[in-house]
């Protein structure tokens, strides 16, 4: 089925030009990176902009590099770029683990990490992991630059802290200390391409408070702060993990929809938490499952 909207299309070559266009008389603008969410939304009339601003010709937005102890992920960096990056594999393999579970190769070649957190659907894969990694979102507008902690980024289904006239240029992900362990676990109906019914990201850094976040079980990805505190206080032995699993129902608020019931999501969050914490702890100790091994 075809798109039946009248649209203007801009493909600015620089950030200045982009911001210039965005500041022109208020139009209903949609920013386009990979388009894997924007295009079907246009087709289904979920959004009805009158112009598209394609960012793919803007210089510098595709950078993927380690800068000052953090991974800089430009807004045009695709999931496939992450999977193919030696730096990611060496320093942040859990990011590639998550990226490898997103949709399909054909989507990952196009879909971007930043686009994923900008479309901000509840089942987005990048959200929980970026929360667990303490990422920061960098925005620019004619007023200047601004940084938002990813904890403050998600405001609701398909709603984020972005303001009109702003562009997310990149996210930065502080690299966990060596000796860290992390895991991303995801529940889906098939083992192939599917959306997450529920997912969890776990990041364990030596001596630091564990960071854990769930996805697809609340209107936005959510940090599991009580579980983090409990594990921080009690360590990662079997008893502590049992206790943490007991807190899951307090941390998430899943709904019943066509993809799963509330009850199943809740129960699987418990299983995923246990498996992901165990895998992350194993990885920290050097003997966990290879990244990419499905935990569910």
């Amino acid at each position: 089925m075809t798109i039946s909207l009248d649209l203007a299309y801009h493909a600015p070559a620089s950030l200045d030009e982009t911001l210039e266009i965005l500041s022109e008389q208020a139009g209903r603008t949609v920013l386009l990176a990979g388009g894997t969410d924007v295009v079907p939304s246009l087709r289904d009339d979920l959004i009805s902009p009158n112009r598209i601003v394609d960012l793919k010709r803007v210089e510098g937005l595709g950078d993927l590099a380690v800068i000052d102890g953090a991974l800089h992920v430009g807004c045009l960096v695709t999931f496939s770029d992450l999977i193919g990056s030696p730096a990611v594999h060496a320093r942040l393999p859990v990011l590639a683990e998550m990226a490898g579970m997103v949709a399909s190769v054909g989507i990952r070649n196009r879909a971007t990490l930043v686009g994923n957190i900008c479309s901000a659907v509840p089942s987005c894969d990048a959200g929980p992991l970026l929360l667990a990694l303490g990422a920061r979102v960098h925005l620019v507008s004619r007023e200047g630059v601004r940084t938002v902690d990813v904890d403050d980024w998600f405001e609701g289904p398909r709603r984020t802290a972005i303001r009109s006239g702003e562009v997310v240029t990149h996210v930065t992900i502080p690299l966990p200390a060596s000796g860290h362990g992390a895991a991303y676990a995801r529940l889906s109906r098939t083992r192939g391409e599917d959306l997450a019914q529920a997912c969890v990201a776990v990041v364990l850094e030596p001596g630091d408070r564990p960071r854990i976040a769930f996805g697809a079980v609340a209107p936005t990805p959510v940090r599991a702060r009580r579980i983090e505190a409990l594990l921080h206080a009690q360590g990662l032995d079997a008893g502590a993990i049992d206790a943490a699993v007991g807190l899951v129902a307090e941390e998430v608020a899943p709904i019943t929809d066509v993809r799963a019931t509330r009850r199943y999501r809740l129960a699987m969050c418990e299983v995923m938490l246990r498996r992901a914490v165990t895998a992350a702890a194993g990885r920290a100790a050097g003997d966990g499952p290879v990244h990419g091994t499905p935990l569910m």
Binding site: L32, G35, I107
Partner: peptide, 9 residues
């Protein structure tokens, strides 16, 4: 690289 031409303008 493989892409889905139904998702590309």
């Amino acid at each position: 690289r493989s892409v889905r031409s139904c998702l590309v303008l």
